[in-house]
């Protein structure tokens, strides 16, 4: 299940997904593992911690990191901080073109996953709609201007939940 249109509040750096529909009670077999999958995560810019919450679209950088608040884990981005080369240096090249034996560059967007098996088993007893919130927290001590708009910190292609049985 994945969602690709998201309610991005342009005044905030917090990413809130559109609802992901998933009825775990309708699954044929019990799953042994469930992940939040995040595809195409940009790492060309800021370095940050992405705090991931389930069904807590109001979460922000002050929200306590516990089960009650829907916190399911974090991913970490080791970014490039922008481009330090000449024009075009950071343009993404298509991967493995025919006859092109050069190795790929490092800027290809990344795949991130957070294992949420137990959490989904509990939460999924009562709900079939999941909203995924990502609160970016820049490295080091936080300052007020971090929460404002500016260059977008969390950039991704698709986000969703996957279960394995």
């Amino acid at each position: 299940m994945s969602s690709d249109k998201n309610n991005e509040d342009i005044n905030s750096q917090i990413f809130v997904s559109t609802p992901v529909h998933l009825d775990i009670k309708k699954l044929e077999n019990e799953f042994y593992r469930a992940d939040i999958e995040i595809h195409g995560v940009d790492h060309s810019g800021h370095s940050y911690e992405g705090r991931v919450f389930l069904n807590n679209p109001k979460a922000d950088s002050d929200t306590k990191l516990n089960f009650e608040n829907g916190y399911v884990g974090s991913y970490h981005i080791f970014g490039h901080g922008g481009c330090v080369g000449n024009l075009g240096h950071c343009d993404l090249l298509p991967q493995r073109r025919p006859y092109d034996k050069r190795p790929s560059q490092d800027l290809k967007p990344q795949y991130k996953r957070i294992i949420i098996t137990e959490f989904l088993k509990m939460l999924g007893q009562n709900v079939t709609e999941f909203i995924i919130t990502i609160v970016p927290v820049l490295n080091g001590p936080q300052v007020d201007s971090d929460k404002e708009s500016g260059s977008r910190i969390v950039k991704l292609d698709k986000i969703g939940i996957i279960t394995y049985d």
């Binding site: 370095s47 940050y48 911690e49 991913y75 970490h76 981005i77 080791f78 970014g79 490039h80 901080g81 330090v84 490092d106 991130k112 820049l138 490295n139 080091g140 001590p141």
Partner: peptide
Amino acid sequence: EDIHNRIHGWIGGRCGDMSYVP
């Protein structure tokens, strides 16, 4: 790799060299 990214950020903080790939 994720824990490695986290340590890069923990050491480098906002502007330290370890925080950024270049």
